[in-house]
């Protein structure tokens, strides 16, 4: 366990240093997210107040999902430079520690993108609107969504390392796989904001599905990551 934690800390520290030295890596998805929100705001124009919450929630999560996809797809990029990835595969490090370090980085990067996205969306899309996504229950839903998407993001990023068509393949696989997560996050938020339901009520419906997907994707990705990084 001690060895596992040491490896996890070392890998996480190395990844944090790489991310810290290059702020473009999280800034560009955030800028992308801002652009998308502005585009949505222009596209929606004046919306009937009755439809606003539904549109606002869907547009926000969609924007977050697109921006997160950009950030996730690049998570293993620094490792491919100077053949770090291939060298790490030959070292006796625990694949779980490796996965968890990448997963932690992805969650941190994701939070840096997701939270400003929620704020910006509230500012531009929901100006004087009847509901606000800056609500503790909705934030819990958004974080749960991030935890689910992060696991699948790391796994797909690892898979795409050797692919010749990763630019097109990543979104092609990421979006269909994340549909249940995105849908349950949108529906949970809608039920909290529009129908006034609380989290305990939602646990038996959409939020429960989101939690199940989170656990399932995390477990599956953790197990499969080890298989993917095994040396040939």
């Amino acid at each position: 366990m001690k060895r596992f934690l040491t490896q996890y800390r070392a890998l996480l520290w190395q990844a944090l240093q790489v991310e810290w030295s290059n702020s473009e890596r999280w800034m560009s998805p955030l800028l992308f997210s801002t652009t998308m929100i502005l585009l949505f705001a222009f596209a929606f124009g004046k919306v009937d107040v009755a439809f606003l919450p539904q549109l606002y929630i869907a547009a926000t999560y969609l924007t977050a999902s697109f921006s997160l996809q950009i950030a996730f797809s690049r998570v293993l990029e620094p490792d491919t430079q100077d053949r770090v990835f291939d060298q790490l595969r030959t070292y006796p490090i625990s694949p779980s520690a490796w996965f968890l370090s990448k997963y932690t980085i992805v969650i941190l990067l994701g939070a840096l993108i997701l939270l400003p996205t929620l704020f910006l969306s509230n500012l531009f899309l929901n100006n004087e609107g009847p509901v606000s996504l800056l609500n503790s229950s909705v934030l819990i839903v958004a974080v749960l969504m991030l935890l689910s998407l992060g696991a699948i993001g790391v796994l797909l990023s690892t898979m795409m390392l050797r692919s010749n068509a990763k630019q097109i393949l990543y979104p092609l696989l990421y979006f269909p796989l994340t549909v249940p997560v995105l849908l349950s996050a949108v529906e949970s938020s809608r039920m909290i904001l529009v129908d006034g339901k609380d989290l305990s009520y939602l646990m038996s419906s959409w939020l429960g599905l989101l939690v199940i997907f989170g656990i399932m994707y995390f477990t599956l990705c953790l197990l499969l990551f080890g298989e993917l990084v095994k040396p040939e």
Binding site: M159, R162, S163, A165, L169, L172, L173
Partner: peptide
């Protein structure tokens, strides 16, 4: 997903 799987296997 099936299409993605097939493109993926062909791209490697």
């Amino acid at each position: 997903l099936y299409a993605g799987y097939l493109i993926f296997t062909n791209s490697m």
